[in-house]
């Protein structure tokens, strides 16, 4: 049972000091989670701390490879709307 940080991570450090198991460490190109240490905050906190503070949608995945902050969940801009905005931007 462990989470994974992927390449969309922007290295903002927000998660690192919060991890109760010191499973998160600075690395390049992006921060990493030590799967042997991560227990998804079970027993420590009601919500997984890294997931609760991460500002980037889709940067942290669960064991099934699912985004814990799925697209639209933080910005409020849902994927369809996002695609539309990007298209409009590119057209401009």
């Amino acid at each position: 049972m462990a989470f994974e940080i992927i390449e969309s991570c922007v290295n903002c450090w927000a998660c690192e000091p919060l991890c109760p198991n010191k499973a998160i460490y600075e690395a390049r190109p992006h921060f990493m989670i030590d799967p042997d240490k991560c227990n998804e905050c079970a027993g420590d906190f009601e919500e997984s701390q890294c997931v609760s503070i991460c500002p980037i949608e889709g940067a942290i995945l669960n064991e099934l490879g699912e985004a814990l902050n799925p697209p639209g969940s933080l910005t409020g801009i849902l994927p369809a709307k996002f695609a539309e905005l990007v298209a409009r931007q590119q057209a401009a």
Partner: peptide, 13 residues
């Protein structure tokens, strides 16, 4: 580097 809120005028990337 870390932040504890999100503002709509900021992009952490």
């Amino acid at each position: 580097p870390a932040c504890n809120i999100q503002c709509h005028y900021c992009n952490r990337k």
